[in-house]
Write a protein that binds this DNA or RNA. Structure first.
Lengths: 354, 354
DNA sequence: ATGAAAGCGCTAACAT
DNA sequence: ATGTTAGCGCTTTCAT
């Protein structure tokens, strides 16, 4: 036999006060005698009363929940991102509604629409998002923060990883270590992070080894694609002296191709990745890579969103960039040393001239 | 200037019908002329109307959201679990509210309380949960499914990994491969999975190598604790011939200790872990381990919960156990081969005698 | 300091 | 087939 959960009316009746007083006490609004307060609290506790959130948000218009729309939940990246977001949300007294999207833009739109009325704001990470899309699919004036996005909107703050600086630092290190000819294995064409990493590669090459050839291989962030790129590399006439993969998984695949061909890393060829996933440090040889503090990215994004919700946020919507560090292990043949690819949290590479 | 989102009244007015008709159309309840339907749908689309979920759940008592209470969001285990849950939830048209708990039982209780009125059911994974705790902290008759739990409740289904069978299979394999003296590195004492893995170790030893000594080392699932256990092992007089760690991370730490001591794996000593995290296959040597299909665990748990919500679930609350497979790589010196530790999805080891 | 009452946006009887 | 209306449980004026 199901006993219904207690409502505010039950508490009011038992405490012999009005529902208004119960509400005032439980929300700490004051204007209630200590004695009344005590009674109300006791009754509420006795009845195991918990306010109904649906009713509350119906009238207040606030859900104290934020939604996260992520493209997939696979791998360390999203695990860490979610962790960062959840931790920060919990610290802000916010709940986290999680949604993944798989089948492209329509899917993302559906996910966003389904969150209407369930969340006070959204964290969005999607390749398909642009300003027009947001305009169309975000409920009126619902605050949102974008992650890993090229969008420049006056309305939505964006939080990015400084992929470019990270790539530049790593390629720079490779060249300084004596490997002029650095090849690059790229990620998915539509992935913003991948695009920026490629840009960084090009920039660093132009800057530090302008005479060396630019050698790019296609990849899609999967180990398999890295493996294929590695094989292609072996067939190349003048073999590159070093390889910079746009992520660690591809570096791992590449390493496998090299090993199968009897090529020593870093003896015959140097190798570096991007992300610093857990695996990287346990490889043989341990993989040099660019470390991204993904949990921090999630935390910062949520804090930015929370600021928006609280209207604490005075600064206009802007693009923030989270720096990353290169971590040098054995795979690139340099002496072990770590350097900051860019400072802690900083403004975008090219601030408005001022 | 913020234009308020359209409400059902706005749609009714514009469509020149009553709110009831709008509701009927949008919920597909029938009893409405095709013409009226068309008009309503058009107006709703034009006004970009989306029903307010708070209002809807206030009256229906359903949120179409399920809550997941997890102890921490760290590592592959939770990443995979969340992925499995989210995927299944989305397939069922359910939303996922995610909450992690850190500081023990009070924290878990708070998380559960905070979900009151926000979810239709809960997935709970927590060491601190027992039947009494649930009775006290779960809103009245809120459906819930427990994961990795020793609880036997007539009210809440439980979904477990068959840790025992997995451990037995792996230890059995180790012994068959010629390593009679298998040592065990245990996990946290309060962790149910860890307890079961230890039980499996003991059972397998008693069964296959009754004369060999039982050698147990303490650990807490961390790499560091595995490293320490490895060091202690090196100091032991008759060194064990094989080590079975209760999870992969400890096996990794143990491997490091062996390597530092110049011990070859599997040449001098065999090694196996549990979980099959991504890293394991990339180690040198690749680690033999027990593979747990964690995403499946999440999916099954959610499906069980969904069945409960739909009252589709005829079977009484019961304990289900998800089998796991051993995957033999190079670290245990056996020939590469994989065997099922237990069948797909099966009833608990000791079904009520019938 | 306390209470009465008006909704928040929606669904679901109950009328027509 | 369509409309009217009473709440769902809560917060929040506005009285007292």
């Amino acid at each position: 036999m199901t006993t219904k959960n207690a409502t505010i009316k039950d508490v009011a009746r038992e405490a012999k006060v009005s529902v208004a007083s119960v509400s005032r006490v439980l929300n700490g609004l004051g204007g209630v005698t200590p004695v009344t307060q005590k009674i109300v609290r006791e009754v509420a506790a006795r009845l195991n009363y918990v306010p109904d959130n649906a009713a509350r948000s119906l009238i207040t218009g606030r859900t104290h929940t934020i939604g996260a729309v992520l493209p997939d939940l696979h791998g360390e990246f999203f695990s860490e991102l979610i962790r960062g977001i959840e931790l920060a949300a919990r610290a802000q007294g916010l709940h986290l509604l999680l949604s993944s999207t798989h089948d492209g833009i329509e899917d993302a739109a559906a996910a966003m629409r389904a969150m209407r009325g369930r969340v006070d704001g959204m964290l969005i990470l999607s390749e398909h998002v642009d300003a027009a899309f947001l305009e169309e699919n975000l409920p009126d004036k619902l605050p949102a923060v974008l992650l890993d996005s090229p969008v420049k909107s006056a309305r939505y703050p964006v939080l990015n990883i400084d992929n470019r600086a990270g790539a530049i630092a790593m390629v720079g290190h490779l060249i300084e270590a004596g490997h002029q000819q650095v090849a690059f294995i790229g990620g998915p064409k539509t992935n913003y992070n991948a695009q920026q990493r490629e840009k960084g590669y090009r920039t660093a090459m132009a800057r530090h080894a302008p005479d060396a050839p630019l050698t790019l291989f296609d990849g899609n962030f999967s180990e398999e694609s890295g493996y294929r790129a590695g094989q292609q590399m072996l067939a190349k006439k003048p073999r590159p002296q070093a390889v910079f993969a746009a992520n660690d998984m591809m570096a791992i695949g590449c390493l496998r191709a090299f090993r199968e061909a009897g090529l020593a890393v870093p003896g015959d060829i140097a190798l570096a990745g991007f992300d610093d996933i857990l695996v990287s440090r346990y490889l043989t040889p341990p993989l040099s890579t660019v470390q991204v503090r993904i949990a921090d990215l999630g935390r910062l994004a949520l804090e930015r969103l929370a600021a928006l919700l609280n209207r604490t946020d005075k600064t206009p919507a802007s693009v923030q960039t989270l720096g990353c560090d290169i971590v040098i292990r054995e795979s690139c043949g340099g002496k072990a040393a770590a350097g900051a690819a860019s400072r802690k949290l900083r403004k975008p590479p090219r601030p408005s001239r001022s």
